[in-house]
């Protein structure tokens, strides 16, 4: 259902065939079979005409879009850039314990520090006494439903996606053992 026939600059309307049937080569594209193939120059002219149908440089009214850029979001970094926010090794261990994911390379640490630096922009905005906005639906009351069971007997469904189960239980290794985190050195 490729919308356009490759050789004929026209949407498909007629019966069409695969590339293989059309050219004998491996199937790559779909072609109309009925339409005649246009000459290359005619095709180029037609497309150029369509592309320049509207003159985007000509306007009738003084534009409301500012002539010169008003804002500047500068994200270009010099090659030797290092984030000014440093996550010390103690904090990093805490984050790894809380997140239960490891930070395994210097690049990852840099990405983390970069994220924090990026967020510093928020810290610098003067907010005055504005209330935090948790949800845009704050004026819509949440609907509650009657406290009734609406499903059940789906034990199999619930256990289906677990890698390891035993007698209708999920299985995990011994608990209450804190994760060991080691101090990181990435040099």
């Amino acid at each position: 259902m490729l919308r356009w026939c490759y050789p004929c600059v026209r949407p498909f309307r007629e019966i069409f065939v695969t590339h293989k049937q059309f050219t004998g080569k491996a199937a790559k594209r779909l072609f109309c079979s009925k339409d005649q193939q246009r000459s290359d120059t005619a095709l180029a002219q037609e497309l150029e005409r369509r592309r320049t149908k509207i003159d985007f440089t000509e306007i009738k009214y003084p534009t409301k879009v500012p002539e010169t850029p008003i804002s500047c979001i500068n994200l270009d970094k010099s090659p030797d850039y290092t984030p000014s926010q440093i996550v010390d090794s103690q904090t990093l261990q805490l984050l790894e314990r809380l997140s239960l994911v490891d930070l395994d390379s210097k690049e990852a640490l840099r990405a983390l520090e970069d994220s924090i630096e990026f967020a510093e922009k928020v810290v610098k905005i003067h907010t005055g006494c504005v209330r935090p906005m948790y949800t845009v639906l704050e004026n819509h009351p949440l609907k509650t439903r009657p406290d009734k069971v609406t499903d059940g007997n789906i034990k199999e469904d619930i256990l289906k996606n677990a890698s390891v189960t035993e007698e209708d239980y999920f299985v995990a290794p011994p608990g209450n053992i804190p994760l060991e985190t080691k101090e990181k050195k990435f040099d």
């Binding site: 395994d104 690049e107 804190p178």
Partner: peptide
Amino acid sequence: AASTEELYAKSRSEGFNIVVKTRILAGNYF
């Protein structure tokens, strides 16, 4: 994995790409 927490940590480290991991760590930092 020898413990539940280690299982969690290992599974997550193997299962997520670096972008996901960094966002989790940064989120927990904030």
